[in-house]
Design a protein around this nucleic acid. Structure first.
Lengths: 259, 259
DNA sequence: ATTTATCTTGCAAATTATTTCAAATTATGT
DNA sequence: ACATAATTTGAAATAATTTGCAAGATAAAT
């Protein structure tokens, strides 16, 4: 294992302090910060990237501004979860699979939610979802929004269970974008809640194409309730942290893997 | 891969701040803003376009004005009630009709939303709703929450249309609490949107008891799309501003009227 | 209807971001 | 302390975004 992905673990607390002080209210450009800190612009960019992942700063073209309050409260378990920027990259790849006027399904989960945020770049979509967070994000988007009814599950803020079949089975979905807690080659996707698993299974069977959005921390993990089998999945989008062996296995099974 | 679309993601916070400050009350022309900012008029136009997308500004011929209603935020935002106190009183009366472990339906509208806020005083309810505002209110309530799926209607933030029948028709609802835009003795309740009207009708037919929550400003008014007939309604809860003649008429028809 | 001003669109130049790589630095094990 | 692995840094190459200009389209004004 020689090739390690270049993930920045931490920046010096000293520099973090200076940056946050500089950003105290006002926006600062990369150049300003670079001079103030006496380091290269490349380093400043990396520092800001790190601070953005921590939710302390928002990067904008040309510089950054400080955020007043942490973006995402951990509504649901994110202990094993990966950096937000990785999720955004996964979401961006997924966005590439969506064209104007598509009919898509959005599942719950933070990665899929990132995708929802990007959907303003498309026009005239029909979006079906069981996620109230995604729905909130798309409320004012102008897209045609259909919400799958069902039992509300507070932890994930999704609609789940048998009732969801009433509407899902009456719709024709082109592409379904799913999140998951765990994913293995043998068992397919799995979740902590069986109602949640049921609804995922339903969607996968109903959609022309089932696309799994899962950062590498999810791959190889198994959770309580399985959803269908691995053959229900057509595409897996993940980040470079995934083990090459797993990728090979999946491709052998005819599953497209995007990193 | 390389797409040439010119979608503006962000403008520098610096410029945004200046623009919004300049627009502090008065309208400004593109030329004025361009000089103030030291950038070309083309850039100002693009900035304003971006701000308009964010709902912060309204572009007019020759310039722009600031909007007072900044905008957005997920499910927790609420528009100003017209007569909050009346609505709260009505909601309180409605609460009196609900006992622990009931199965109830909540419609959209601000009065019904007030009722939703009061539901923490009950235990173990099963709440069915087509209102995302009500759903947001009840998310953490501990009640069993079921959301009727369907087409999302942004204006009322409710789920409406034929798809709602899939779930509504499979549930048994004890008491349904409905809002309305207009209500007359001859026509029953009426709304501005026919999908919305359709769903209300469905609910009234399905519920054992249909309870209308309408402040007196709604009574006697007629809107575009009618929902069922007046005989579908069992109870009307309103405020003392209602005309005695109307009350008498309603009671004659076997409808209970609560003020 | 004609004139004038404002708006939109396409494009090339400038600016800013991201990626990649080698050198410098820091950490780790012996 | 030494050698080795891992991480961070800066620079250069590549990609993406933003900007200003100019020509054609649209709206207001006379």
């Amino acid at each position: 294992m020689s090739k390690m992905t270049h993930i920045r673990k931490l920046l010096t607390p000293e520099r973090e302090e200076i940056i946050l002080a500089e950003l105290g209210g006002e926006a600062r450009t990369i150049t300003e910060l670079s001079q103030k800190l006496g380091v290269s612009e490349a380093t400043v960019r990396r520092d800001l990237l790190s601070l953005e992942d921590q939710g302390k700063v928002k990067r904008v073209h040309g510089g950054a501004i400080k955020l007043k309050f942490p973006e995402h409260e951990p509504v649901f378990e994110e202990k094993e979860s990966i950096r937000p920027s990785e999720k955004q990259k996964i979401a961006k790849l997924a966005l590439g699979m969506i064209s104007d006027k598509d009919t898509i399904y959005l599942d719950g989960g933070s990665t899929v939610l990132e995708l929802a945020k990007l959907l303003k770049e498309r026009k005239g979509l029909t979006v079906v979802t069981n996620s109230l967070m995604a729905a909130a994000e798309l409320m004012e988007s102008g897209h045609n929004l259909i919400i799958v009814g069902g039992k509300f599950r507070p932890l994930s803020r999704t609609l789940v269970g048998p009732l969801t079949s009433k509407i899902i089975n009456s719709l024709n979905i082109k592409k379904a974008f799913l999140g998951t807690i765990g994913f293995t080659v043998e068992g397919g996707i799995s979740t902590t809640d069986s109602d949640e698993a049921y609804t995922k299974e339903l969607v996968m069977q109903r959609a022309e194409k089932a696309i799994l959005l899962a950062d590498s921390s999810k791959l190889g993990k198994k959770s309580f309730a399985a959803s269908g089998s691995i053959s229900d999945i057509d595409v897996v989008i993940t980040d470079p942290g995934v083990s090459p062996a797993l990728v090979k296995d999946l491709r052998k099974m005819g599953i497209e893997v995007v990193v």
